[in-house]
Design a binder for these strands. Structure first.
Length: 547
RNA sequence: GCGGCCGUAGCUCAGUUGGAUAGAGCGAGCGCCUCCUAAGCGCUAGGUCACCGGUUCAACUCCGGUCGGUCGCGCCA
């Protein structure tokens, strides 16, 4: 809630008290910005909402409130009743321009708020297996996860960003065998990559790295004997590539946790014991089961197979327990849509461990469907016929790709036309925002005076619009954090950039006859530039000074 | 068959605890640079918000059903 809206709400609350002797919570009063300018700067529907309680018709209620509202000041220039009972407020222009000084003084900190939620949050995202390149689905998860954590931090949350490296399962053995085959192939040995192995070109490149490091040292070694070597070096290289690609994509993590280390530290046994101690496991047909049905899953799940090996689920539970043990109150997992069947058992598991269901929040990131020549382009990491994150970045650039993925809600399906991606340079919305920023910087560069420190001349409609939008920024960030919807930041960016372009077209800033107005507008431009830059930073997109 | 997600303009998508005439970008048409970046601005065209019913003063929004798309439903990971 921004300053102006809060003030308005209090004014309304006071008016209701005075007119009807009725108390109403501040939270119950809705003040919003009408879609149409004719309906004023802000509007409230309290009269309609009170209609039922007070047993009076909305318009009559509004009339009485209006009488009280007009006797107050609080920057309200005019209030009027419209439609079925809305009260519209027209603000004194000067009250809006207050935000400029606030933005200028807070600068990089504008948008930050204090959070009443003091819990420790852990957000896990991407967590792609170290068996090949990141694909567009991972890119979407990375964009959203990284942006979400930036937004949550700005909204005052205590957040740790985490990546879980699945370096212990079957898929790693397959990767090792595939790498081994590529290595041997490079010495002309007739051996094929296993059917269920990984056929991507990344392993051919890693095989070349192996050759350059150890030469033919493993050429004649027994296949079984050399496998651990390829496993180890394959993991090292694949993990390094993941980190590098994510770094290039401007995506960072605070903690990288290895699945192998979960085993090595005995956490799996600890988790199994805790589940059993809580009475939530049983043995049937030689396997150990978790009673997930007790916690809402549709069937119980196997933890330890009949052959004594663990299923994927158990170490994963151990990993989540470990996160709790490390002191995190709430765990957020951003999972790909192909794992949504996994949510129920994970939520069940956290309860079986003895924690409330709300300690784990799983958000699904829907797949991005790739289109090429108007047809779906199926991807598979295993066969190597995949578009990688690196390919995407080369085609469209980091900023465009990130913006594209973050601009859509994570739970909706989306299409990405690969042909469009290459020619997206002029069509992508990210350039619209970046161009606005570059324009502002250009004005600031060309200015030969200092920005003003008071802004009473900022009363033009286009200027007031910019002020209103800036006022919204901190609340918008908070809202995006709470609802875990980074795309709201993109919507905001579009709105701010659009308002600026409109202002730019109508209002000259530099070299005006009225030097005071020029300096005040310069301050406005500086404030908008700060706000836009801060917003772009929230989603990891650059704010160029020139284009 | 069961379950998750989705269905809004030609395309890709927004739509703030249910509110006034449902929006943006791209694409289409028409205008705007003697002036701070025209990667921009203004205007126009384009909609039975998949369909049916219910709740409400008020439904794109909430509930039920139907149709369509998509993903998942292993002692795989």
């Amino acid at each position: 809630m921004n300053l102006i809206e809060t003030t308005l709400k209090k004014t309304i609350q006071y008016a209701i008290k005075k007119a009807f002797d009725t108390d109403i919570e501040l939270d119950e009063i809705v003040v919003e910005e009408p879609k149409s300018k004719e309906h004023g700067d802000y509007a409230t529907n309290v009269a309609m909402r009170l209609s039922k309680v007070l047993r009076q018709n909305p318009k009559a209620i509004a009339e009485k409130l209006l009488h009280e509202l007009e006797s107050k000041e609080d920057g309200i220039r005019k209030a009027e009743i419209a439609g079925p009972g809305f009260i519209n407020f027209f603000m004194e222009a000067g009250s809006l321009s207050e935000v400029i000084a606030k933005v200028l003084s807070e600068d990089k900190d504008f948008g930050k708020t204090v959070c009443e939620d003091k819990r420790r949050w852990n957000v896990e995202y991407v967590s792609a297996n170290p068996t090949g390149d990141l694909h567009p689905g991972h890119a979407r998860g990375a964009s959203i996860g990284d942006s979400l954590t930036r937004i949550m931090k700005t909204a005052g949350y205590d957040v740790t960003r985490e990546y879980y490296i699945n370096d212990a399962g079957n898929q790693i053995n397959n990767m090792a065998k595939s790498l081994q085959a590529r290595y041997l192939q490079s010495y002309g040995i007739d051996i094929t990559v296993p059917e269920d192995g990984y056929h991507g070109k990344d392993l051919i490149e890693i095989a070349e790295t192996v050759v350059s490091e150890v030469g033919d040292a493993y050429k004649d070694v027994d296949i079984e004997e050399s496998l651990p070597f390829f496993r180890q070096i394959g993991l090292r290289e694949e993990t390094k590539k993941l980190r590098d690609d994510l770094w290039t994509f401007n995506v960072e993590f605070d903690v990288w946790t290895s699945e192998q280390s979960v085993y090595d530290r005995g956490l799996v046994e600890r988790a199994l014991k805790q589940l059993t101690d809580n009475g939530n496991t049983y043995v049937s047909e030689e396997a150990t089961w978790l009673r997930t049905t007790e916690f809402g899953d549709d069937k119980d799940r196997v933890l330890v197979r009949g052959n004594g090996l663990y299923t994927y689920l158990l170490p994963d539970i151990a990993y989540h327990l470990n996160k709790k043990d490390r002191g995190f109150d709430v765990l957020i997992d951003l999972l790909g849509a192909d794992h949504h069947g996994y949510i129920a058992r994970l939520k069940a598991a956290i309860q079986a461990l003895g924690y409330p269901s709300s300690d784990l929040e799983v958000d699904i990131i829907q797949m991005a469907r790739m289109l090429k020549d108007g047809e779906e382009f199926k991807m598979s990491k295993r066969t190597g016929k995949a578009v990688s994150l690196k390919d995407l970045i080369e085609e469209a650039g980091v900023d465009a790709v990130r913006y594209y993925f973050v601009s859509r809600a994570g739970d909706t399906h989306m299409d990405l036309d690969l042909d469009m991606a290459s020619k997206q340079s002029n069509e992508n919305p990210v350039y619209y925002a970046q161009y606005a920023h570059a324009r502002m910087c250009s004005i600031l560069r060309n200015a030969d005076v200092q920005p003003a420190t008071s802004f009473e001349l900022i009363i033009h409609p286009k200027e007031s619009e910019l002020c209103k939008i800036m006022f919204e920024f901190p609340q918008m960030v908070k809202d995006a954090a709470q609802t875990r919807q980074p795309h709201k930041v993109c919507n905001y960016i579009q709105k701010l950039a659009s308002a600026f372009h409109a202002f730019y077209n109508e209002c000259q800033v530099l070299n005006l006859e009225d030097a005071r107005l020029s300096a005040q507008r310069l301050g406005l431009v500086k404030a908008v530039q700060i706000t836009l830059r801060n917003a772009l930073t929230l989603i990891g997109v650059g704010a160029p000074e020139k284009m």
